[in-house]
């Protein structure tokens, strides 16, 4: 079985077009993309893990403070009068406006940067 030179010769001589010249390049491009995806997934998993552990620690702290140190986390009672409510609404309005303007600024900056990048 080790000899079988006729089979070896046939397999060697069977003419299949060779693998294309850019096969290695194309494969490595996909490998790099895959590596980047894996890296991002690992980052997100880490982030989720850290967030979960952090929340768990905060919950444990609250539990310990409440149970062992009789610490109270009850919110103070707030009585809203019509004048204080109008001030509150105004503050929310200003805050929303500020967020909107900051968002718009960031969006315009990104667009400008992209356009500049494309021109280069």
């Amino acid at each position: 079985m080790e000899k079988d030179k006729l089979i070896k010769q046939t397999l060697k001589s069977t003419q299949w077009p060779p693998v294309s010249v850019d096969f290695q390049y194309k494969t490595m491009q996909k490998v790099f993309l895959l590596a980047e995806k894996k890296r991002k997934r690992a980052y997100m998993l880490n982030l989720a893990g850290i967030s979960f552990v952090s929340l768990l620690l905060v919950a444990a702290c609250i539990y310990i403070l409440e149970v062992y140190f009789a610490f109270s986390f009850t919110l103070p009672e707030i009585h809203l009068t019509s004048s204080s409510l109008s001030i509150l609404i105004f503050s929310f309005y200003i805050a929303a406006l500020v967020f909107l303007l900051i968002g718009l600024d960031a969006f315009m900056r990104r667009r400008w940067q992209m356009r500049n990048g494309n021109l280069e």
């Binding site: 000899k3 079988d4 030179k5 006729l6 089979i7 010769q9 046939t10 001589s13 069977t14």
Partner: peptide, 14 residues
């Protein structure tokens, strides 16, 4: 399969 190769046999084997 240890015969000396010839064109016909190679084609048949292919």
């Amino acid at each position: 399969f240890d015969e000396d190769e010839n064109e016909r046999r190679l084609q048949q084997l292919e």
